[in-house]
Design a protein around this nucleic acid. Structure first.
Lengths: 145, 145
DNA sequence: TATTGTTATACTCTATAACTATA
DNA sequence: TATAGTTATAGAGTATAACAATA
């Protein structure tokens, strides 16, 4: 059973990837050498460590990523995107870009874009000022924001 | 068991409302007389009719909305927000507004805001040009966007 | 003792398909 | 026949808590 919304819209569905999975792959693919720790990923994709473990399990089962212990810290696990993973991203990316262009970029003028990115960039920085989570048991989780 | 992300961020969690539920309530509350058909709601909140039925069931069970047959079309069901529903929205709204202000508005200048709303408004209109769904079996669902 | 990641578990949400009733 | 809504069902995703291993 499939359950999609943005996935369809953004064309990511073509590769049978959820948006979250796409994020994980894409972030790794365009990274220096396609490696990163689980926790870093979790904080980036924004949810619990266990949730990431689940998704990583799916991606690994499909041979799109690999998990290996970090050389320096035996506790950490490093995620590496395989060739198949890169290939899939490459396969999906054009459609994704097309969709984004069609939905977001087409109706905007060049000026709008620069303005938009400036304004939203500021918002993003401001939001990120608040620390992430993902590590602690979150017992004393503040209700603030 | 609770599972939240934006809900927490947007302070909607205070009233034990998911973001979708909040949307349903808020849309009704600020409507002329707080009434609307199920399908209209489904198209607005963007998912399947059955999904809306599920959520409406939850809200109704909590006494926040009421469902009654439409006077003109016996097939339709009209959703009405109860006093309790309005009260809850009123209770949650300030925190929600605060959160949005803190996260989005604070880091922006007045000018940014007008620009932003103009640009995003254009994007929205463009996106909405594509027809909704929610009714059809979606057999011939196009893969486009 | 704190941190990294995994596992078991429980539960929410969503969609598809089949169905009823009305237009 | 087409539309409005519901129901049954199945599955994906997420979080919490408990756990093992390393720092």
């Amino acid at each position: 059973m499939r359950q999609r919304q943005r996935e369809d819209l953004l064309q990511v569905a073509d590769g049978d990837l959820s948006y979250v999975q796409f994020q994980i792959l894409a972030r790794r693919t365009d990274a220096p050498d396609g490696k990163l720790r689980m926790t870093d990923l979790a904080d980036g994709v924004v949810y619990s460590r266990s949730g990431l473990t689940y998704q990583a399990g799916l991606l690994e089962k499909r041979g799109l990523i690999t998990r290996s212990p970090a050389p320096d810290d035996e506790r950490s696990v490093i995620v590496t995107v395989t060739d198949a993973g890169r290939a899939l991203v490459a396969h999906v990316l054009p459609g994704h870009i097309d969709a984004v262009r069609r939905l977001l970029f087409d109706p905007l003028k060049q000026r709008d874009l620069t303005t938009l990115s400036g304004v939203l960039g500021r918002v993003r920085d401001h939001m990120r000022a608040a620390p992430p989570r993902s590590a602690k048991p979150r017992a004393g989780r503040s209700r603030t924001a």
